[in-house]
Design a binder for these strands. Structure first.
Lengths: 331, 331
DNA sequence: CGGAGTTATGTAATCGATTTCAAGGGGGTT
DNA sequence: AACCCCCTTGAAATCGATTACATAACTCCG
């Protein structure tokens, strides 16, 4: 190895052309004479040349990367969304960087929102400060969103989805329906609660009893304990939880106490994460098209990077998935 | 906005110093006179200057990024490992890029293994070609590994872990123990199968009946169907599956048929993904320290990038987690 | 007071590619 | 023969930071 790593001038020298020509072969082959091109390609092969992306990016004033800001990387809900994004970004020549907004200290996460770090940002966390994001790089919001921050959003209709879920429980004959909410201050929490209340109101039923939650298994378990702690006569006969993880925790707790789902209580989740189809009982839930959310978000971002100024929302359809955890109330 | 984006010369001009001095304030403040430093910092504030990473990286001949090659981003098993890696890399000033080795076409994934793209690579997929990886950037293998490829590995002792699992089943009194294996050709598949066979042999029991699998829920479900298809007298009384996801599929299928776990069959998983603690029955399994795997892998890579040549393995301890899915055989 | 040593700063080369601008050569037209 | 155009190609500027080397000022000491 005479050179640590061949550069474009090494290729140029070997091929007997200028660096400009080599560069053209690399990025715009058809404008180079066929024979010259062949020579250069041969030189590239012989030297084992690989281009330096830092240099190209510097010249192009771009980074070739897109950052996804995820509230919690450990949450499997996001992994399929990331997979969808990667599937769109990779063919377009972009790298996907992921960052956990919780793991890294508050505002420092915004260091990713710089043009020299990333060409664009996909934000999946509605709790980030709008000021920090403004005027930096193209942004797309997915799933969650930031009130007062104008950017294209890729989302589902959470309110309507919650309505569908509760309508189903009502149709089964339930009259006392509880809701286990998401974390306080989250936009999804509010939308799903609103949908729940709307559906009940539309059927002349009283507002739901609401148990606190935060989308995690553990909080679902606590909700289960809280439900069990009620006098049997006062227990809602159906519970709609704002996430599947919580539903799993809830069902686990209820079954542990010896009661049975859906005989003693109907349970409805939200998200349709893969596992819940295989539990016993299989969970009835709202299916979120997670891969599609990732793909659309990535595509919207690419459009934005390409100069598209549109900021209308993309609302993807959900599906009511009925499985074994919901049934008519007893008696 | 007169400038699109202030550069280091703008700061220098405003502070009345050279770009060299500004650069020094940025990366080595203590060698600059306190008063000058104050001036420069003030100028940085006034101009709203942000440094361009592409330029710095070009000069430093580094990228500031680390790539994780994951077999399947949708698999929640990996998300917690990624979280662990991010927790170590971010404070060290590295970005974490993730790529799905399955989603992107075969060899093209190796484009990430270039010094100008990433300063290092964490490979979680044992099926990548060793030749492609050799002699490129520092590599650390995590979980899986590539036979014949020398690099530090961060892993668990899969053989021994499988042994522990099967020993437990034997201790409960089981004599007919089946194994549901991982995908053919995978190093984990072989190690876990070997451990299973070893444990049985040590107790004078015949080799296990082996059902094919590939770590996915669906394959676990198929294994459940295959188990059910056996004449009741020939059914193994316990099944050890090479992943929790498969165990979930298996249990789901068995319970669907009206049988009960662990009364009719004991089930043992592998991984201890978060959800399985909340199923009914809760799954007995082998706990893998996923966050720690991620952290250690990231740390090893940082060491390697820093010049450490060591390539010994880091073997992290697993735990046998006993929950409700295993019990003595009937009768 | 001259010389060594220290500290602080500036000048200019450098990282490795891309791209503007200019120019050479060939063909066709009048 | 003069002119124009197109096709190729090269020279050199450029992207925005870092840093080796040079230099100036100041201190210390015999």
């Amino acid at each position: 190895m005479q050179h640590q790593r061949p550069k474009i001038v090494d290729v140029a020298r070997l091929a007997g052309v200028s660096t400009a020509t080599v560069s053209r072969v690399l990025s715009n082959p058809q404008i180079v004479n066929a024979e010259t091109r062949r020579l250069v390609e041969e030189a590239i092969r012989q030297t084992g040349y690989r281009l330096n992306h830092a240099a190209r990016n510097l010249r192009h004033r771009r980074t070739g990367g897109v950052v996804a800001l995820v509230p919690n990387l450990s949450n499997s809900f996001f992994s399929q969304i990331l997979a969808g994004m990667a599937a769109v970004l990779a063919p377009a020549g972009y790298n996907l960087l992921v960052a956990d907004t919780r793991a890294e200290g508050g505002a420092s996460i915004l260091r990713y929102a710089e043009p020299s770090r990333a060409d664009g940002l996909i934000v999946l966390d509605g709790s980030l400060p709008a000021e920090g994001l403004a005027r930096r790089v193209p942004v797309v919001l997915a799933c969650e969103w930031i009130p007062g921050f104008a950017a294209p959003r890729v989302k589902i209709d959470n309110r309507q989805a919650a309505q569908m879920a509760v309508e189903h429980l009502i149709a089964l004959g339930h009259r006392q329906i509880a809701h286990v909410a998401g974390p306080v201050g989250n936009v999804l929490t509010d939308a799903r609660l609103a949908g729940t209340e709307l559906a009940l109101k539309a059927h002349g039923l009283p507002p739901p009893r609401v148990f606190p939650g935060d989308f995690t298994l553990a909080s679902g378990q606590r909700a289960g304990a809280a439900w069990l702690a009620l006098p049997p006569g006062e227990r809602p006969t159906a519970v709609f939880l704002a996430s599947d993880e919580m539903a799993c925790g809830f069902i686990g707790e209820v079954q542990h106490s010896g009661l049975t789902v859906p005989r003693d209580v109907s349970v409805m989740g939200f998200d349709d994460i893969e596992l819940v189809a295989h539990m016993t009982p299989a969970l009835s839930t709202i299916h979120q098209p997670r891969n599609a959310i990732g793909r659309h978000a990535a595509q919207r971002l690419l459009d934005r990077i390409g100069g598209d100024e549109g900021s209308e929302d993309t609302v993807l359809p959900v599906e009511l998935v009925l499985r074994g955890s919901t049934a008519p109330p007893r008696g």
